[in-house]
C-alpha cells in the first residue's frame, strides 16, 4: 500500500489544493466547544482533530428543510424542485459517518429509489480522517473502527506530527494529483481505544433485542426522558420526515417541503382524528432503539446504529443508548427465555 505523509502544517495547503478542484465541506469551529461541518471559505479554518459534529454529513443529502415542489395557486400548476448533485469534497469525515451514509443510501435506493437524495449524493469525493474515541463513541462495538477506510476515496490517519495519507480509490488519487507528499515513514497509526462497549457482538444482538420487547428498561428510560426528540435529530441514520406547505404572503403560490421528523416526538404517529399510535415515551424509546438494533438489521444484517454516540452526548437527560442495549443484553443472559 502506498502511504504518504501529510505534516500538520501542510493541512491548509491540502485544503487549498482540494478547493481548486471542487467545493470543500469540512469540520470548522462553531461556538465555544463545538465543531460543525460547513462549506470551506478559509482553508485555515478546517479542523481535522475533533470528536464529533452535532449534525452529520446527512444534512447535505437530506437537508433539514428540503423543497419537494413549487406550486402556483392561481392555476394549480407545480414544478419539481431542482435538485443538484453536491459535487464536492467532503473532508475530515469520521468512519462512522461514512458508514451512516451507506445506510441512508440503502434506505433511499431500496424499494422506491428516491431522486432527491440520490441525486445530491452524486459527485462526492470522500476524504476521511481518524479520530480518538471519546467517552461517547462506541463504533468499535458495531464493527466500524476509527481507521476504517470503507467508502472513502482518501483516508487520513493521525500519526505523530501529522497524518498518514492513504489513497483508497482511483478518484482519490486523481484529486490528490499534483499535491506532492513524501512517503510515510512513521509506524502504524493508533487503532484507537474505545471507552464504551456493547457487551455482545452484533450477530447476536437481534436475538437479544427481540427478547427485550417487554423489558422494564423502556419504562425506566421513559421516566428520565423529556421526549424532546434531540436523539432523533442528531442521529446520522435517522431519515424520517414530515411534509409541510409554505404559502407566500401574497397567497399566490408557495412550496411543499419535507422537514426532519423524529419518532420520539408525540405527533409522529398521530392521525387525523387524534389517534396516537405510539402514545407513551416508553414505546417511543423502544421503537427508536429497535429501529437501530433490530428492525433494519433483521432485513440487512447490519445495525442501523453506527456508534457515533451523538444521541447520548446530546441528550440533556443523559440517556445512554449503550446502557439501554447493555441492559437488554444482561437481562437476556439472566433470562434468555423472556422472548415475546
Amino acid at each position: 500500500m502506498d502511504l504518504k505523509f501529510l505534516a500538520s502544517d501542510r493541512v491548509e495547503a491540502l485544503v487549498s489544493h482540494l478547493m481548486h478542484q471542487k467545493a470543500v465541506y469540512a469540520p470548522q469551529r462553531m461556538g465555544r466547544h463545538s465543531v460543525a461541518l460547513d462549506k470551506v471559505t478559509n482553508p485555515a479554518a478546517v479542523v481535522l482533530d475533533y470528536s464529533r459534529t452535532m449534525q452529520s454529513v446527512k444534512k447535505y443529502f437530506q437537508p433539514p428543510r428540503d423543497e419537494l415542489l413549487k406550486f402556483d395557486l392561481t392555476d394549480q400548476s407545480f414544478a419539481a424542485a431542482t435538485v443538484e448533485p453536491l459535487d464536492a469534497v467532503l473532508l475530515g469525515i469520521h468512519s462512522y459517518d461514512r458508514a451512516a451514509i451507506d445506510r441512508l443510501d440503502y434506505n433511499f435506493s431500496q424499494g422506491q429509489p428516491e431522486k432527491n437524495y440520490l441525486k445530491r449524493r452524486e459527485g462526492v469525493i470522500w476524504v476521511g480522517v481518524s479520530y480518538e474515541p471519546d467517552e461517547f463513541h462506541f463504533s468499535g462495538s458495531v464493527g466500524i473502527g476509527p481507521l476504517e477506510t470503507e467508502g472513502f476515496d482518501v483516508f487520513l490517519s493521525r500519526v505523530g506530527g501529522g497524518y498518514q495519507v492513504e489513497t483508497v480509490t482511483e478518484k482519490g488519487g486523481e484529486i490528490l494529483a499534483g499535491f506532492d507528499l513524501p512517503q510515510a515513514e512513521q509506524g502504524k497509526p493508533s487503532p484507537g481505544h474505545f471507552h464504551q462497549h456493547i457487551f455482545l457482538p452484533q450477530a447476536r444482538l437481534n436475538e437479544v433485542m427481540a427478547a427485550s420487547y417487554s423489558s422494564p428498561v423502556w419504562e425506566e428510560t421513559a421516566q428520565k426522558c423529556v421526549g424532546c426528540g434531540s436523539c432523533n435529530i442528531v442521529c446520522p441514520t435517522c431519515y424520517c420526515f414530515n411534509v409541510e406547505e409554505n404559502v407566500d404572503i401574497k397567497v399566490t403560490g408557495g412550496t411543499r417541503e419535507r422537514i426532519w421528523d423524529g419518532c420520539m416526538l408525540r405527533e409522529f404517529t398521530e392521525v387525523a382524528g387524534g389517534e396516537v399510535f405510539r402514545g407513551g415515551l416508553a414505546e417511543r424509546q423502544r421503537h427508536r432503539v429497535l429501529r437501530k438494533f433490530k428492525y433494519l438489521s433483521d432485513r440487512t444484517g447490519h445495525p442501523w446504529c453506527v456508534g457515533c454516540g451523538r444521541c447520548t452526548a446530546y441528550c440533556t437527560a443523559g440517556i445512554s443508548i449503550v446502557s439501554i442495549v447493555n441492559r437488554c443484553v444482561s437481562d437476556f443472559e439472566k433470562h434468555p427465555t423472556t422472548a415475546v
Binding site: 462553531m30 461556538g31 424532546c228
Partner: peptide, 27 residues
Amino acid sequence: TALVMGKQPVEPTSAVCVECKLKENEC
C-alpha cells in the same frame, strides 16, 4: 396566510431542543 386561505394553521408542539439541534447550537 393560513387563515386567509381558510385553513387551520398547524401549531408546533415539539420542544425547543429540536430547533437547537437543527441549528447545531451548543446546548
